[in-house]
Each structure stands twice: as structure tokens, then as C-alpha cells.
Write a protein that binds this DNA or RNA. Sequence first.
DNA 1: TCAAAAGTGTTATCCTTACACCCATGT
DNA 2: ACATGGGTGTAAGGATAACACTTTTGA
Lengths: 323, 323
Amino acid sequence: MDKQAKGTRKDRAAVKADEVKVDLIALVVAVNDNEPCVLTIGQADTLPSGPFALEHRSLQSGLRGWVEQQTGHPLGYIEQLYTFADRDRIGSGRQQRAISISYLALTRKEQAAGSRKCGWRSWYEYFPWEDHRSGTPSVELDVLRPRLIEWADGAGDAATRRERRQRAATAFGLDGRPWNEELTLQRYELVYEAGLVQEAGSGRDPTRPSLVPSKSMVADHRRIMATGIARLRSKIKYRPVVFELMPQSFTLLQLQRTVEALAGRLINKPNFRRLVEQQELVEETGQTSLETGGRPAKLFRFRRAVLDDSAVVLGTRLPLARA
Amino acid sequence: MDKQAKGTRKDRAAVKADEVKVDLIALVVAVNDNEPCVLTIGQADTLPSGPFALEHRSLQSGLRGWVEQQTGHPLGYIEQLYTFADRDRIGSGRQQRAISISYLALTRKEQAAGSRKCGWRSWYEYFPWEDHRSGTPSVELDVLRPRLIEWADGAGDAATRRERRQRAATAFGLDGRPWNEELTLQRYELVYEAGLVQEAGSGRDPTRPSLVPSKSMVADHRRIMATGIARLRSKIKYRPVVFELMPQSFTLLQLQRTVEALAGRLINKPNFRRLVEQQELVEETGQTSLETGGRPAKLFRFRRAVLDDSAVVLGTRLPLARA
DNA sequence: TCAAAAGTGTTATCCTTACACCCATGT
DNA sequence: ACATGGGTGTAAGGATAACACTTTTGA
């Protein structure tokens, strides 16, 4: 099927190596005022990135270098997202191959220092249909769903129509199916395929506005973001990564609000507390917070001990609040 | 901390691009006679691989090309595992950067055709301690565990000793902890760090034999294998990927034995059947198998319909048999 | 008849979910 | 007093795990 690569293992050393340009791209996430935010540069439509170069000791240190230089932000937790080949770019005269390695990083906003031309944007500006904390948002109900169904029914043959409706139904929880917050990537793909959003510089008509109001990004950066959101929403359920986004000490409600911000849905307070405490993820600091309104709350800190214990199941299941 | 990368975004186009060699590496898995096998070339210590080159339309098609050429095997299901930078290699006189992108692929053995210099090896030849289908294997009890504890206790300071014992305990299920089959990578890392296994051409003493009897591999191929095993063991629990390894039609026991081969542990028959059937993963073909011994078994086929339905939770939880 | 594998039924237990309710503080 | 958030108790329902038991074939 595919054209065969030439050359056997033997002469691999002999042929001129096919060299490739490698880019590192970072999706840096923090939660500020109960909003999940990503770090952007330029017109808030580009993720920090830069080429993997000789002076970098490793992929991760290269990434840290670029992000720190472009945004002034040091990175803590990092995990790899995905590696993909870009559409061929044209170098100086000859064909140029390029691949991108994307990463997910978690930090706290405060650590910001040099405010170069960069900023934090709520990820729901790019994915307004992903925020279900106040119920299904009207963008989804009034704009997305009707247009998606239109698109599905506009397919040539019956098989495609059925397949499209099926995908839309599972991705958006139609026909009585439950909403699944982890399907962010599938939803983005649907919306993109249906032509309801456009990206900058992707050879599509730049004059026609997006049919669904949402902020676009350069190249496939928004797709990388969707991948990262999905990964994070899944991961908080089985690994204690939320704490990378929390300050040293926090109240249980702050923790809950952070998880809700990421998941895009509300969770049940009493059950959440029990879950967190019984798993021994946190311990009391002994102090209390003199919050806005209400009875003072105990302050907690993350029990670093569980990280040793970790590599094991521990995590935060989500006791969702009923809809 | 890390040395900063030079150059700002502006002059990225101007500087000579740092070009890199990109290798594609495949971990191809099949299950034959209830043994999980990987496809190897050479002395059974190398995974199929080759450079990503200009003529490849995409990363995946490049991978397919190399595997088919080196082993004669066409690939079906493929998923990306991990991308890492190799230790610097020396090119012709100048420093050469290289990265490897590893993939996990699932097939059936029968599809084999050209038997070039390649073969199938049980993955338990490389990881004898991972097979708990007949209880904890003696390699682990008699060799690994004592030596690991020796290693842990041999650490200089008390903190390191504690940390090592802790890691060993969770990874191998010591001190009453349960065995977790998904921790394959953590176990390999421990065993490697403790110097109980060695790999070919990694600058370590090649005359000293491995302390734990097991087959070694070239460079970091065995580590890639550990990553793939862990990924697969985790994935079969929430996505119906086992069926990529099954023939068109099969009995429920065959399905069970395949899952057991991958997981490295036995599962409870009645509960497994119920699980599979109630999730509507399979449907009867109407025929029965005239097996080796015993009452004839109904044959089933995978319900492809669930793949449309998919992107959703469906999968195969493992109702383990008690130890 | 026995071995071997195919199947079915039933129970105890735990985890999750839902929800009702009381406590402490500021305005 | 009441609004706001902190915090506890409990009961119903579903999923899982454990295991006992019946059925159908070939040797």
C-alpha cells in the first residue's frame, strides 16, 4: 500500500541521513480564580514553542528553556502529549520535513515573573462548549447542536449520515446518553470536520468567520490543546496531579473548585471531601482560612508521602453532582 | 537551571535549523498459543525500526514500511508509545542529534508471510518476572526479591534505603501489598537500576552476565517493550483492543486465555464471560468449535458495532481469580 | 465412567450516589 | 436572623468477587 522505504538495515549508515526539524510545543496549564488557563504568546493564538537544538540536554530541558525564555515562566510538572509530523514545509528551496513534540505542563500562576508578550487565557475561550459547570452552555444548545445535525444530515449517503449522527451523539451526549467530559478531542474533531471552526493559516477561507463563536489558534495548536484537556481530565481521576496546580495550602473547597474547573462540571461536595480524605491525599496544616463569607475553613496541604506510595492507583475519582 | 536556548522567536527562521535524525521503532505484539509475543529481528534482540525519511507520507506509514520490509508483516492497529532523545550519537565527524518515536502495534501471527531474518519471541523471555499465571515465578521469589532488597539496603544513607524499599514494595507487591500487573515499567526500572539486568551496547561490562536470567536487548529496546506491555495491560481494561489479537471467530475461553497471557495473571471464568457478554462486545456466529477435549464451545465474533459506539468507556475489566 | 471444558445461578461485600442535616462565622 | 460556606451521617442501589453447581462432549 504505502510506498516502500528504500534501503535495508545494512546500508542505513551509508545513505545520507534524512534529517528533520524538530519543534517542541508546550501546553502550560494553571487554574486562576476557578478558571483553567493556558499560557499563550503573540495574539493569544500561539502556544510557546521552539526548535529542539544542539545545546539542549534533553527534550524536556529544551522545552523548559523555550517556555522560560518566551514567557518567563519556570515549569514544574511536565508530561509528553503526542508527536506528529507537520504537513511538509518548504525550507530554503528544498523540501523540509518537520515534526512536533507536544507536552502538557502544570504550574501555578503566581510564579509568573517577566511579563513578556504572553498571557493567560481561559481554555473555555477556545472551547466554549466544554464548560458544563452551569449546565449545558447555550452555544452548544443553540448553535453547535443544530449545525452539527445539519452537517450530519447533509452527507451524501445514508451510511455516512448514520455514522456522523452516531459520533455526534456519543461525543455530545445526545439521545439520553451521558455527557462525558473526557471526549474533548473527539468533540473538537467533529466541530472542525463540520467546518464550524477554522484555524489561522490553515489554507481555509480567512474571511468567512467561524460559525461557532470561539477563539481560534495558529496551525494545529487548538488541537493540541484539546488533546491536553482530554488527557488532564482523564488523569486527575487516577493520579494526584491536581496538586501541581494548587498553592502550598488550600481549603477543600478550593481544591474542589479547581477540579471542577478542569473537568468542566460540578461535583458533590460531601462525597468529594470524603474521597480526598479517605485516600489520605491531604493533611491538615492546623491553620484555618479567614475566607470570604462563611465559617472558617481548615487549611490542608498535599501529603507528599503519597508520591512515594504512588506509581500506584491513588487518585481522585469524581463524585459528580447530579444534573 | 538549564542552559538557555539561544535566539528569540524572531530569528528562528534565520538561524541554521538544527536538524535531527528521527527513528521509528515498532513493538509488534501478537498472541500465539497463549503466549504474548513480540516481533524481533537479528539475534532476537532488536525491534524493527528505521529512519523517518522524505518518501514517507506520515510517521505511521513510515513505520509500516519499515516493519513490512524487515519482517514481511503488514500492521493493523497502531498507537504511539513515546518519543525520546537518544544519547548523542557521533555522525561522520560532527555531533549528531537523534530522537526515536516508538509505537505499539497489534496483529495476528498467521498474517506472517516472508520469513526474513525475524521471529516471534515470548515477551516473558525478556521479563520472566512478569508472568504470574502460575503464581509468583521462582525467578522472582528466589533471585529478584533477595537481590533487590540487598540493593536497597546497600544504599549509603537511610533516606535512600527507605525510598528504595518503598519502591520495591509497591512495584513487586511486597509486605502484603497486591501485585499490580500494570507496573511493568517501574519494575524494569528498579531491576535495571539495581544492576540486575544489562543491555547490549550500553557501555556496561559485557563480560559480566546478567544476575537475573533473562534475555537482553539492544540499546533501550527492552525499556520500550516494558512501556508497551504496561500500556497494553492498562488499555485492555477500558478499550476493546484485545480483538485486534484474535482471529475472526473464537471461543470465550480463547478470548480469556489471550487476556490472561497479556495480563500475566489468571482471571475468573464465569465472571469474565458475563462481563464480556453483558457489555455486548461479542455476538455468536452460530457455529461451535470442535476443540481439544470437552464439550463443544460456541464461537463468537467481535461486534464491530461497538467501535462506532466507542470513543466511550466500553472495555474489558479483569475479574481476577483469587490468589 | 471419567476428564475436560462449557456454561448458569446465587450470595456477600464493597463502593458509589444521593440527599438530609447540623455547625460556625460575618453582616 | 440569615446567608455562606464548612462539615457529618446514612441509606439505597449497583458492581464485583467468590464459589457452588449443572451440561455436553471425547476417550
